[in-house]
Simulated scan of single mutants.
Amino acid sequence: MRTEELRHKITLQKLTTSTNENGFEEEVWEDYLTVWAAVSNLYGREYFEAAAVQAEETVKFTIRFIKDINESMMILFRDKQYNITSIDNIKYRNKYMEIKALEVESSG
């Protein structure tokens, strides 16, 4: 992976609980970290495996290694939200991570 391939900005979001003006707790997605990423669609065998479970909207994000990322987070990219489905520390070298995420369908 070359550094110049990380040319897209993505924002990692985490679910937090806050109290609204009426005193009720509500869960909201809060920006956690903005990073540079390489973004690509699935192709070849990966695409057909995703299509078999109707997950064609899966996108692959490659970022520099960050220790505190997990599957409970969400990615914001080009005004679309993506649920993280898997995280791979590439070759366990702690240099890059490959995140597969499924686009969240907009309601309404």
Results as ranks from 00 to 15, higher is better:
residue 1 M to C: 09
residue 1 M to Q: 07
residue 2 R to L: 14
residue 3 T to A: 14
residue 3 T to Y: 12
residue 5 E to L: 15
residue 6 L to Y: 04
residue 6 L to K: 01
residue 7 R to S: 15
residue 7 R to H: 10
residue 8 H to G: 03
residue 8 H to V: 04
residue 10 I to Q: 00
residue 11 T to Q: 03
residue 12 L to M: 02
residue 13 Q to I: 02
residue 13 Q to P: 03
residue 14 K to C: 07
residue 14 K to S: 15
residue 14 K to Q: 14
residue 15 L to A: 08
residue 17 T to A: 09
residue 17 T to I: 06
residue 18 S to E: 10
residue 19 T to S: 05
residue 19 T to L: 05
residue 19 T to C: 01
residue 19 T to E: 08
residue 21 E to Q: 13
residue 23 G to H: 07
residue 24 F to L: 10
residue 25 E to V: 06
residue 25 E to Q: 15
residue 26 E to L: 09
residue 27 E to C: 02
residue 27 E to F: 05
residue 28 V to K: 14
residue 28 V to F: 09
residue 28 V to P: 04
residue 30 E to I: 04
residue 30 E to F: 07
residue 31 D to G: 03
residue 32 Y to S: 08
residue 32 Y to K: 10
residue 33 L to T: 01
residue 35 V to E: 02
residue 35 V to W: 03
residue 35 V to D: 03
residue 35 V to G: 04
residue 36 W to H: 08
residue 37 A to C: 04
residue 37 A to D: 00
residue 41 N to Y: 12
residue 41 N to H: 13
residue 41 N to R: 08
residue 42 L to G: 05
residue 42 L to H: 07
residue 46 E to Y: 08
residue 47 Y to V: 05
residue 50 A to S: 07
residue 50 A to R: 06
residue 50 A to F: 07
residue 51 A to T: 09
residue 51 A to N: 12
residue 52 A to E: 15
residue 54 Q to P: 04
residue 56 E to Y: 13
residue 58 T to E: 07
residue 59 V to Y: 08
residue 59 V to M: 13
residue 60 K to N: 10
residue 61 F to Y: 05
residue 62 T to V: 11
residue 62 T to K: 13
residue 63 I to K: 02
residue 63 I to M: 01
residue 63 I to F: 02
residue 64 R to Y: 13
residue 64 R to F: 14
residue 65 F to C: 01
residue 67 K to N: 10
residue 67 K to F: 15
residue 68 D to A: 10
residue 70 N to I: 01
residue 70 N to L: 03
residue 71 E to Q: 15
residue 73 M to C: 02
residue 74 M to I: 10
residue 76 L to G: 06
residue 78 R to H: 13
residue 79 D to T: 08
residue 79 D to P: 04
residue 81 Q to A: 14
residue 81 Q to M: 14
residue 82 Y to F: 11
residue 83 N to Q: 13
residue 84 I to W: 02
residue 85 T to Q: 13
residue 87 I to F: 01
residue 88 D to A: 12
residue 89 N to M: 03
residue 89 N to Y: 06
residue 89 N to F: 08
residue 91 K to A: 15
residue 91 K to G: 06
residue 91 K to C: 07
residue 93 R to C: 08
residue 93 R to W: 08
residue 94 N to W: 07
residue 94 N to G: 11
residue 96 Y to S: 02
residue 96 Y to M: 05
residue 97 M to F: 05
residue 99 I to T: 02
residue 99 I to A: 00
residue 100 K to R: 12
residue 100 K to F: 10
residue 100 K to D: 05
residue 101 A to V: 01
residue 102 L to D: 09
residue 102 L to G: 01
residue 102 L to Y: 11
residue 103 E to N: 06
residue 103 E to K: 09
residue 103 E to D: 06
residue 104 V to T: 06
residue 106 S to G: 09
residue 107 S to D: 11
residue 108 G to N: 10
residue 108 G to P: 01
residue 108 G to H: 08
